[in-house]
Design a protein around this nucleic acid. Structure first.
Length: 155
DNA sequence: TGTGTGATTGTTATT
DNA sequence: AATAACAATCACACA
């Protein structure tokens, strides 16, 4: 016990919401970065011209059995939950592209306490993911090119 | 018939 | 430090 200052990334992501001292006054100390995060991601179409047998979503989607894929972020977890409700409320909506927009919009309106729930999940996921990375790194260190390419796609 | 794209934000990895 | 790309999902469009 006595594990107060966890330091490091684990730093209790849910502590903010868990701590609800005083009356309903929540000390929401969201560090206002102030800087506008402009997304300058060049979303070109790298897939243009890349044909894979399976359906490689969009870009790369490299099939690295050794490299653990990125776990869904808190936003994605929220999406799963939001998606269900959204479909019920908006049966007319066909695709999730619209949902994604709605989610993103609502996500920003959500308070830290609400988001923290999903953040907590993502945090746990990352913990597991961290192990995968460690194993991956370790394995890589042990035998970098040791993969035998099991079955080189033979259809 | 089959597969790629589209959109959301967050996280991770790489440089 | 900052950038790049990817993480899931589902319906539609094109060849």
């Amino acid at each position: 016990m006595a594990k107060k200052a966890s330091k490091s990334r684990k730093s209790s992501s849910a502590s903010a919401s868990a701590e609800n001292p005083t009356t309903g006054k929540i000390a929401l100390k969201i560090k206002s970065t102030g800087k506008k995060m402009k997304k300058v991601m060049k979303q070109s179409r790298p897939n243009s011209g890349n044909k894979s047998k399976t359906t490689p979503k969009k870009k790369a989607a490299k099939i690295d059995a050794k490299k653990p894929k990125k776990p869904p972020t808190a936003f994605f977890y929220f999406l799963e939950d939001f998606r269900k409700e959204f479909q019920e409320k908006n049966p007319d909506v066909k695709s999730m592209r619209d949902i994604g927009k709605a989610c993103g919009e609502k996500w920003k309106t959500m308070t830290y306490e609400e988001k923290v729930q999903y953040y907590d999940i993502a945090t746990e996921k990352r913990a597991d993911f961290d192990k995968s990375i460690a194993a991956y790194n370790k394995k890589k260190e042990s035998g970098e090119d040791q993969e035998s390419e099991d079955s080189a796609f033979d259809e």
